[in-house]
């Protein structure tokens, strides 16, 4: 059987909220190392990879690997029933048909029990190479969300260009064009707003704003986001889960988006 307790149900709620609009059905693979989900959107343009290590759970027991086929919008509906400071326990029998979800308030005076029907999902799995990227930009996740939203006003494709001086987001469409440049800063008093750039060579790639918009739904998870790019490969937009700022969390939520290329 599988049984795991997370002290903050809100963390799981934010994770599922962040992916449910991009991916409808997904397999959560549970093993002794933790919980993982990998899924593509319906157009196979982007990929979500969620890793929750056992470290972030108060209690974690997994006797045999289990695959939990989950309808994410339905899971999100149940998670919305949790209170702000509730803990959540997930339970599933080997080959069970349901996932039990139990919320408990801090003082344990309120216990809510739900069951979510599991599904058989035939999903293709991709091997993500563990590669070094040419450019890694760390910035405020709220700022990234705002830029993507502002770019969407003007068009559907955004160019992201990075040099040592800064990172430039550009868009053009029927009504005109626009760009926003963020310079590298190391403002000590506003650590969360700092923009840090590590790069080998300048890089510029084009991406569909629709998908970047989906990714920024993860902003409530972490005040910082890491954007990694290399020429002609998918961009990675990564958020720590259950960690603080730039420090490594016990989990991560990474989004991969294939670039648009000139024909």
């Amino acid at each position: 059987m599988f049984e795991a307790t997370l002290q903050k149900a809100s963390t799981l709620k934010k994770v599922i909220e962040a992916i449910k609009d991009l991916v409808t059905d997904g397999n959560i693979e549970v093993s002794e190392t933790g919980m993982n989900l990998q899924a593509m959107d319906s157009s196979h343009v982007s990929l979500v990879s969620l890793v929750l290590h056992t470290d972030m759970f108060e209690h974690f027991r997994c006797d045999r690997n289990v695959t939990l086929g989950i309808n994410l919008p339905n899971f999100a509906k149940i998670l919305k029933c949790s209170g702000n400071d509730d803990s959540v326990t997930l339970k599933a029998q080997d080959d069970g048909e349901n996932l039990a979800i139990v919320f408990e308030s801090e003082g344990q005076e309120r216990v809510s029990e739900f069951e979510l029907k599991l599904m058989d999902i035939d999903a293709e799995s991709l091997g993500i190479p563990d590669q070094d990227y040419n450019t890694n930009v760390k910035m405020s996740s709220a700022e990234f969300q705002r830029i993507v939203r502002d770019m969407t006003v003007l068009g559907d494709t955004c160019s992201i260009g990075c040099t040592k001086e800064g990172v430039k987001f550009s868009v053009s469409g029927d009504l005109g064009q626009g760009n926003i440049t963020l310079r590298q800063t190391n403002s000590v008093d506003k650590e969360e707003e700092a923009v840090t750039i590590e790069m080998d060579e300048p890089v510029e790639l084009n991406f569909a704003l629709r998908y970047l918009g989906f990714f920024t739904k993860a902003s409530p998870l972490c005040p910082r986001v890491t954007i990694s790019m290399s020429p002609d490969v998918p961009i990675v937009v990564a958020y720590n889960v259950g960690g603080e700022k730039d420090t490594e969390g016990a989990g991560s939520l990474s989004f991969y988006l294939a670039p648009k290329i000139d024909e």
């Binding site: 593509m40 157009s43 196979h44 343009v45 982007s46 990929l47 293709e124 799995s125 991709l126 091997g127 993500i128 190479p129 494709t157 084009n206 569909a208 490969v233 998918p234 991969y256 988006l257 294939a258 670039p259 648009k260 290329i261 000139d262 024909e263």
Partner: peptide, 14 residues
């Protein structure tokens, strides 16, 4: 014009 590439063309199927 720009063409949207698929994510599966960058990563190998497992």
């Amino acid at each position: 014009t720009r063409k949207q590439t698929k994510i599966s063309s960058f990563f190998d199927k497992e």
